[in-house]
Simulated scan of single mutants.
Amino acid sequence: MAEIEREVARLDAIYRPVATKPMDIIDPDAFENMGATIQADLAQLAVDDQAEAILRTIIEVYAAGDKTMRAAVRQLFDRYTSFRWAAHLPRDWDTAAEFRAHLLHLSARDQGPDTRDEILTLQDLCDRARQAGIDVDPILDEIGAMSSDEDRYGMGSMRSVILSYGKRRTG
């Protein structure tokens, strides 16, 4: 785990200037161009492949680990917020395995800085998976069961959010 943390800390330091870059709120074009600007800034860093590789390793450790190991992984995402913000799996996917990987990543982030954003992410992931013909409920049950049961922000735990989502959307 120490080697993983060293790599996450290195990438977090690389991502930090982009993640914390102030935005000119007076410029009306700033909001309109924000996504493209951020994507261009991240692309200039040229670490996407490295970040995805360590993120996949983290997800494997999280999935295979016990309760203590999963808590340690969640702490990584809490400690290295620029990495948490910038490191992502590919946005285009259509398999159950990739849906599962995205849910594991969501679970490991454990609500990130805002549960509402994570609920929207969960909704998008499930909608996309269903459109691809993936039976989401067994995967939601599996990942929900390994998720944290801590209610960090008063909106329920990641476990309750994930476990209730499939039942709520299919009923």
Rank of each mutant, 00 (worst) to 15 (best):
I4A: 02
I4N: 00
R6M: 10
E7W: 00
A9V: 03
A13T: 08
I14K: 02
I14T: 02
A19L: 01
K21L: 13
A30R: 06
A36S: 13
T37F: 08
I38A: 09
D41H: 07
L42M: 10
A43D: 12
D48P: 01
D48Y: 09
D49A: 15
Q50L: 05
A51F: 07
A53C: 08
A53T: 13
I54R: 06
E60P: 00
V61R: 11
Y62I: 01
Y62S: 04
A64G: 10
G65F: 03
A72Y: 00
R74V: 09
R74S: 08
R74K: 06
D78P: 01
D78H: 11
R79M: 03
T81P: 02
A86H: 03
L89I: 06
L89M: 08
P90R: 00
P90W: 01
R91W: 08
D92C: 06
H102E: 03
L103A: 08
S107L: 07
A108N: 07
D110F: 03
Q111R: 11
D117P: 00
I119L: 15
L120H: 13
L125K: 04
R128G: 07
R130S: 13
A132P: 03
I139T: 15
D141P: 03
E142W: 14
A145N: 10
M146L: 12
S148Q: 05
E150P: 00
E150H: 13
D151P: 07
R152M: 10
G156S: 10
S157Q: 05
R159A: 02
V161I: 15
V161R: 14
L163I: 09
Y165G: 02
R169E: 10
T170Y: 06
